Amino acid sequence: MTYSVAVSGASGYAGGEVLRLLSAHPHVSIGAVTAHSNAGTTLGTLQPHLHRLRDRQVEKTTVANLRGHDVVFLALPHGASAEIVAGLDSDTVVIDAGADFRLRDARVWQEFYGSPHAGTWPYGLPELPGFRDLLKNERRIAVPGCFPTGALLALAPGFAAGLLEPDDVVVVSASGTSGAGRAAKQHLLGAETMGGMTPYGVGGGHRHTPEIEQGLSAVAGEPVTLSFTPTLAPMARGILTTATARVKPGVTAERLRRTWSETYGTEEFVTVLPEGQWPGTKSVLGSNHVALQLAFDAHTGRVVVCAVVDNLTKGTAGGAVQCMNLVLGLPESTGLLHAGVAP
């Protein structure tokens, strides 16, 4: 069966990545391709790497242009999705790559985003313990943010098994510049980013902080508090996350490794590497894959987990296509790449 799919925000990095993956999907027919200020141009002008779609006309992002498709992907700025969704049929599968429907707490949304809360949709990270079955019959799914994807998968096994203390969790992530979007910004110019790294959103101010806390709290069954610091790395795409948490008394290094390995042992897109091998961002470039490694720091009583994702693939568009496959009853790996690009 072939499904008609529309993609909004086609001029941005996330929308372009969704289209890259869908162009090779065997059960998809790409319908409307929309944007806002770039409407009226050809897709090849905006996304020259999408060779098969280069002559497609980019339409304006309106309900009328998106209506009538089996699946709609939204890759819009924060706060723009709710109005579009309200005009779509209830049986249309809508996958939102933005943040609008990720958070459950309206007060927290208001604090971090400064706009009215649009509501909450099921959270589209199937590898989180217990989440896959919740997604299968849904028609609206909120795709996780790129930082939360790596951070949640890094620590979820330990919290789901009750091995980790819920306070004093620390996550530091280094991200490529594409994570900040495609709009021109001075601090993202090549001359500003090459040869150095900078932190941002320090002191609990990054918008992904409550999203990571929400996900870890859900699998832990109790509130988890988090210190999250993102950094900007001189690369186009990829995230390296280092996540640490205190282990509960009596938990051994062997039990930690067994728990992570058993949790992800049957997952297609998450790999716990052999002992002694540490993940690098280049190993997942262009793939819908997460590679991670863990160690027990006996001196501090903490587990240390390093995880890598491609922020545009598994961190955004690949996760979105994976969720679409799940909802449509297709194998989750349909149209998605297992292998990264090397060198």
Rank of each mutant, 00 (worst) to 15 (best):
L43R: 13
E213S: 14
R246G: 01
G181L: 14
F112I: 04
A220W: 07
V251C: 01
T263A: 11
G31S: 04
E165F: 05
N311Y: 00
A106H: 15
L46N: 07
Q57W: 04
P210W: 14
A99I: 11
G280Q: 14
Y113F: 15
M1A: 05
V270C: 02
G40Y: 13
T244N: 00
N311F: 01
E267V: 06
T281P: 06
R132T: 06
H69R: 05
G9Y: 15
V33E: 04
S23P: 04
V108F: 10
C306W: 12
Q186A: 14
L328R: 05
R246K: 13
F147W: 08
L125Y: 02
C306D: 09
S90H: 14
T281S: 05
L256P: 04
H187V: 08
P210T: 08
G130S: 07
G145A: 11
I239W: 06
P331D: 05
A32V: 05
L164R: 00
A291K: 15
P331Y: 08
G12I: 12
V247T: 06
D167Q: 14
D91T: 12
E165N: 09
G181V: 12
D96Y: 06
P126F: 09
V308W: 12
G329H: 11
S217G: 05
G205R: 14
L22F: 08
E254V: 08
R107P: 00
P77Y: 13
A161G: 07
D167E: 15
V71R: 05
T231M: 07
G204M: 12
G319F: 05
H289K: 13
A10M: 12
V171A: 00
L66H: 03
L336P: 03
W121D: 05
T281M: 03
G221T: 02
L19R: 13
A35H: 10
Q110I: 04
S217I: 06
R237P: 00
P223F: 03
G114E: 13
C306K: 08
R56N: 00
P249S: 02
E165P: 00
Y13K: 06
T242I: 07
S115Q: 15
S178A: 14
L294I: 06
G265Y: 13
E213T: 12
V290E: 08
P230K: 06
V143Y: 10
S227A: 15
A317Q: 10
A118R: 04
V308S: 04
R102K: 11
R139K: 14
A142G: 03
I84P: 02
